[in-house]
Amino acid sequence: MEKGVSGLLACIMFLVATVVIVLSLENGNKQTAKQAARQSFQTALGGVGMGATTVPAWNFGDYDPRLQPGAYDRLYPIPGGYSYSPDRLTMVSSFQVK
């Protein structure tokens, strides 16, 4: 087999193997120390945070709808998409103010 052929095939196999290993590590049931720490943190606080923001801009609606009623479609981190919430006027964008 030519050197280039084996090189390209090895490259593809390496990429596939990397993806499979990372996927199995990420989706395995094994609980890591980090996960346990996250669980005990949330247990101690009684559960805080749900949305895709780290700051309580204007109100808690995006930060955690448990703290203040808010639009639940804001929880998803990917911006854009149709607004399903009647209290949102923006269609594809919005701005955050600290």
């Binding site: 669980q39 949330q42 247990t43 559960g47 805080v48 749900m50 949305g51 009623p69």
Partner: peptide, 28 residues
């Protein structure tokens, strides 16, 4: 997205079973 969703699920699963507030003018 999945990372944020996982953390949000952790927050719910390890949080309380019920959250009680007063409803005042439609707000908490």
């Amino acid at each position: 997205s999945e990372g944020v969703r996982e953390q949000a699920s952790l927050s719910i699963d390890n949080g309380a079973d019920l959250y009680i507030t007063r409803a005042q003018y439609g707000r908490n």
